[in-house]
């Protein structure tokens, strides 16, 4: 976990209060790049999209990284709440006790990795079949979520995420992997 040092937090406050074009002010901390490099070392492949749903199944964050035939907003909401229910049903069908829901769904053309935090917020990513390291990426996204969303004093819990810093850092860390992939 990172904590804001005073200068970073100051920047954060300035952006929030004066609504300055965020990209011009923010410098991404070094550790973000370090993490991206770590992912690259394992040869990370493409992510198609990323979803975050709150504990009652509402979509609070959706990002598409270039899947064919983009879904409209209503469809993403439906898909997210459908996933929430499927996750719950899979726990009921477990043959042994202590089931915490689907972690990986392997479809014909994609893999869906899901990570559920202790508070019930679910993070799931749609990626190419056979992609490794998505679990650690989701945990990293969770870390970003706790640092840049939950610590944002203007964020209302369980509501859609509109935090510029979170957006920027997430996009940068995911896009870096994609750019590296295209260059291969």
């Amino acid at each position: 976990m990172v904590s804001f040092n005073s200068s970073e937090f100051a920047k954060f406050k300035i952006i929030k209060s004066f609504n300055i074009e965020a990209a011009t002010v923010i410098q991404v901390p070094r550790w973000v790049f370090r993490f991206s490099k770590r992912l690259l070392g394992f040869g990370m492949a493409a992510i198609y999209s990323l979803y975050i749903i709150n504990k009652s199944g509402g979509l609070i964050y959706y990002k598409d990284y270039g899947s064919a035939g983009r879904m409209d907003t209503n469809d993403t909401l439906r898909v997210a709440s459908l996933w929430h229910s499927m996750h719950a049903i899979s726990q009921q069908l477990s043959p042994v006790s202590g089931c915490s829901g689907i972690e990986l769904l392997q479809a014909d053309t994609f893999d869906l990795h899901c990570f559920q935090s202790l508070t019930g917020t679910k993070f799931f990513a749609v990626c190419e079949p056979g992609t490794q390291q998505i679990e650690s990426l989701l945990k990293f996204v969770y870390e970003l979520y706790t640092d840049y969303v939950l610590k944002n004093p203007f964020y209302e819990i369980e509501m859609p995420i509109r935090c510029e810093l979170f957006d920027i850092i997430l996009t940068q860390s995911v896009q870096k992997d994609r750019v590296a992939l295209l260059g291969q």
């Binding site: 035939g69 439906r78 459908l82 049903i89 899979s90 479809a107 014909d108 053309t109 994609f110």
Partner: peptide, 27 residues
């Protein structure tokens, strides 16, 4: 019933989510 329902719904979910095809129909 629950098992069949889960499979049916997961199949419509994957059909809708498929990131490689543009024509996916309705959920």
């Amino acid at each position: 019933k629950l098992m069949f329902g889960l499979l049916f719904s997961l199949k419509s979910l994957t059909a809708k989510m498929d990131p490689t095809s543009a024509e996916k129909g309705n959920l």
